[in-house]
Design a protein around this nucleic acid. Structure first.
Lengths: 325, 325
DNA sequence: TACTTTGTGTCAACCGCATGACATACAAGA
DNA sequence: TCTTGTATGTCATGCGGTTGACACAAAGTA
């Protein structure tokens, strides 16, 4: 059973292929009668226009790639869901790529763009030194990652977030606040959180200390970092974690070390994704405006696809008070 | 700057288009010299073969659709991440569709299959009455959902899960155990959990009661159901929730109603996804073997794509003891 | 009547690549 | 010398749909 094609429809309807195509694309002059005949024939044959053939001619696939470390994470999960919803409504379908633990993968997804297999790309992955990004006018938008000068970034106000969290811990009387973040070598707006933290610590005359935890580490190794943290710094009475799952690990480690949260150690997380809020509502955290970030990224991508110049966007964050810090 | 195509490469390399195609696809006889010439020309022009043109000829896109309610959920997030990882290694890219709160969407994604835009589909969405599923030999696999007789299902052993959870609550001395599940009208293997619960309750001479909670409900409305539950049944001392987020909501509602967990009410959840375990490690839950389920689904889909007949698969679940029940 | 609008057909080219058929040329081996 | 293998080229066709150019006829309008 070979695929039904335009020809078959045309033959059954007793019209020319061109006419069927006209009906399909609503071009030129058409009588109600032929329109009906054609529709009837399409129905009878259960005709579906071949999308790939159309894509070849149109030079667009209406597919957008999303490349993030992993969708199995409250923040990226929510972000990608929000992105998909919005892109769907604009007529785009979404190709999902999880680049975590596979350095080549991000570049592979980038190739889809050069292949013509996708029209645009939204990236939040953080593999460094991918040459192909350094091209002007690529229809790419990044979220919370700096990939190249030519690519606009959507970010929440990380500096503000760093200040909010640190200030709250200071106000609560914490003397020895430790921060966790990505390795400083990684170019991400995330580092601004660290800057906020460090500036405030300096201003208050406190010693600043950041433990670096790579995002791609397996959970048990991340947990080990926190165990080490409390072993090396038993005086620590405040933790500003760079994301909510790390905050959770910090709390686990603190309790394991015989400390009460928040009495002995206060912990503040980061992200405030919906499923984290649901599962761990007591966590004090800095919430990123995930729906707005998704919207901004989609807006930028649309403009980019239309060939317009765009600027990076920064959105405000919000402190959500909880019981942990 | 029009796209570089085969012709351009051929011209620069001083060979015929056919020869370039031969190099690209490694067909026929080729001298090292021409291979080098061609590669050099491709490099110089930064040539990328057009994927869509290839797809049109090959009649395949190496794209697989994933349609689930939402990726913004610990269970589906992990599942889709596992699926993507495995499919990627087989050379497939993944199109993600979140069908929650949009009944037409699932069918739209199904159309991609008939369009020729994707080669196969893995579905876990639960919109009912989609005609197009009732077609034989479609390259579709479903996970934890019954969509039609012809489509193989990958499921965890829900009956076993229902029994494990109920038995644990009974053993702990609970007298009034309430279960939550999807509406009974929804055809999903999920209903087997209910069967396990009900059979055991009957066997022990207890009254069985299931509160029906649609998955698509917003969280606050789900929470309201649990508030109602404790209002209507203050005697309730055990909850077997059909997923972990509902378990969390049950715990919240219980505490709001002045009950201690687990002293007054014991709560057991379902799913045991990795991020849930991380954020809420104290929750007692029935864990589904998500990686194995993903693997099974991919295996089935591969066979299906190869035109082989396949059988549904059921995998065992595991009780993870925690502090809540 | 002459002109315009409407409705449909034919034909060809194109989107970019793959491939089969066939021809040609040169080398090595029987 | 005749075959066989190696190395390319030309040509045409197909994948399925879109589009422009052009022709032609019928109906409406000036």
């Amino acid at each position: 059973m070979a695929r039904v094609k335009l020809q078959d429809v045309a033959k059954l309807a007793g019209v020319s292929v061109t006419t069927v195509s006209r009906v399909l694309n609503n071009r030129g002059y058409l009588s109600k009668q032929t329109i009906n005949k054609v529709h009837q024939a399409m129905e009878e044959l259960n005709y579906r226009p071949n999308a790939v053939a159309r894509q070849l001619y149109k030079q667009r696939t209406d597919l957008v790639g999303l490349v993030f470390p992993t969708v199995n994470n409250p923040f990226f999960g929510q972000l990608e869901a929000e992105l998909e919803t919005r892109l769907y409504e604009l007529g785009y379908r979404v190709v999902m790529g999880n680049s975590q633990n596979n350095p080549g993968k991000e570049e592979q997804y980038l190739q889809l763009l050069f292949n013509g297999q996708i029209d645009g790309l939204i990236v939040g992955a953080h593999n460094e030194g991918i040459e192909a990004y350094h091209n002007t006018n690529l229809p790419i938008v990044s979220i919370e990652r700096i990939v190249s000068k030519q690519i606009p970034v959507v970010a929440a106000d990380n500096y503000q977030g760093g200040c909010l969290a640190t200030q709250r811990l200071l106000d609560a009387g914490c003397q020895h606040i430790i921060h966790t973040n990505y390795p400083a070598t990684l170019a991400t707006p995330n580092q601004e959180r660290r800057r906020g933290y460090e500036e405030l610590m300096t201003k208050y005359g406190r010693e600043k200390l950041t433990y670096e935890i790579s995002f791609d580490l397996p959970d048990d190794q991340k947990a080990a970092v926190f165990d080490r943290l409390f072993a090396e710094h038993p005086e620590c009475d405040g933790i500003f974690a760079d994301n909510d799952t790390n905050a959770r690990l910090a709390i686990n480690a603190a309790q394991k070390a015989g400390k009460r949260v928040p009495e002995d150690v206060k912990v503040i997380g980061y992200d405030g994704a919906s499923s984290t809020r649901l599962l761990f509502p007591d966590l004090t955290t800095i919430q990123q405006p995930i729906p707005e970030m998704a919207q901004a990224a989609v807006d930028l991508l649309q403009k980019r696809l239309a060939g317009q110049a765009v600027e990076s966007v920064t959105l405000p964050v919000k402190l959500i008070p909880g019981l942990t810090g």
